[in-house]
Design a protein around this nucleic acid. Structure first.
Lengths: 225, 225
DNA sequence: AATAAATTGTGATGTACCTCACATTTTATT
DNA sequence: AATAAAATGTGAGGTACATCACAATTTATT
């Protein structure tokens, strides 16, 4: 068995439900690949017979909107990507692009389906993941459409700080244009609000680096607009 | 066995994977209830130990947004509702309200989980449903945020015409305020655009009744903004 | 280190849509 | 049928944000 697979089995909640034999079987049907920032893991519209397991790194899920790219979710390892393709018509319904050095295992769909079939605990965990994805999109959608820019940007900063890096200071892997596509605003507006936040002493930033100086106010802004 | 359950087993793709014994077992753990327009099936924030199977009728899934209700999806029977609750913390993460006379079976969570555990075909179908839900939300989200009002309203009319009623003429079960909450616009704007569409000879409407006169133009509007 | 490419900052201008306000119509309730 | 409550139509006015345009900076490439 490939040694990497054993590690995954510890890190991924779903994979931890697999027996040694199942992991072994899986290890014959998956290939570990390294990706750089900007690389495309999954490309909307293309044919696929793999599930992608994001082993490490960060990626953005995005779809082609009627006018421009729309980033629907930021995903952090460990997570499975491309499940709708597995269960659907084998055409990728969204794109996934790496935003921070990533390791990915491409798992053959049939091997993956076999696991779902034979191991209810595994498939239960996958369902859990699907459900929580759905809820996340619900909430992101409501926030994105109802709040105004300041609130939306505060959300993004807090998301990266709390959910992704667990730090008050981090290097934002998204460009301002990306952030715009994530919260549905123009690049210029993002820039303006960021400088506004800096002037108000809420954050400090230079280049990619963002440091949160006043999380309390950020939370207030997130809540009120 | 309750005779209703046999009917469900035919209509629902997932339930059709169940054996007679499983259906029988299920029938002891579910209760058929009728709901009227406006009734709440699932209420966000409340505790639940049931999955709701929408047997007939129409409902809206909505969540409390930071400022106002947000309708995230319109669901048509047959479908399962409240799955994230089953797999999560048992607190409903969204509300579901009937918009057209509905019959609902409330299935005990444990009975439901037993089925998922014992019947991989069933759980596969459920996963399929979850995946397609996720994709639907992705796309709705992109449309909602990128298109302008005329396009968004055209989308809603087409959705009801094509996906829900399969007819060019139907009684819209949503109020204009609902439509606003679905596409993120004000009630007034919906009203204005609707009369605009009527003036342009695209639709005819009075009260709840909507008749599509020029679907081609509607599609164009949907595509271009 | 030099050059090109990508990303960001910031002003000026425009507009799509929201909000408020009230009249009118439709639907529910007694 | 009468009355109340919801839902809709429509004008006037304001605004948050987009868009355009170009300069300044940062990051990538040779």
């Amino acid at each position: 068995m490939k040694s990497e697979c054993k590690i995954c089995a510890i890190k991924s909640k779903a994979a931890s439900k697999l027996s040694d034999e199942e992991i072994e079987e899986l290890s014959f049907n998956c290939a570990l690949v390294k990706f750089h920032k900007g690389d495309s893991l999954i490309k909307q519209g293309t044919f696929s017979t793999n599930v992608a397991y994001l082993r490490s790194g960060l990626a953005k899920i995005h779809i082609e909107g009627p006018y421009h790219e729309q980033i629907v979710r930021i995903v952090k390892a460990p997570t499975y990507l491309g499940l709708p393709t597995t269960f659907g018509d084998k055409i990728n319904q969204y794109s996934v692009t790496v935003i921070e050095e990533a390791e990915v295992c491409f798992i053959d769909i049939n091997a993956f389906r076999d696991l779902l079939n034979s191991n209810p605990d595994f498939s239960y965990e996958i369902m859990l993941e699907l459900c929580s994805n759905e809820l996340e999109v619900f909430h992101r959608c409501a926030n994105r459409t109802q709040k105004q820019i300041r609130g939306k940007i505060a959300d993004v900063i807090l998301e990266f700080s709390n959910k992704i890096y667990n730090a008050n200071s981090f290097a934002m892997p998204l460009t301002q244009e990306d952030i715009g596509n994530l919260v549905d605003s123009s690049r210029e507006s993002i820039s303006r609000v960021m400088t506004e936040f800096e002037k108000d002493g809420i954050i400090r930033f230079s280049g990619k680096k963002i440091e949160i100086l006043n999380k309390k106010t950020l939370l207030l802004i997130s809540a009120n607009g």
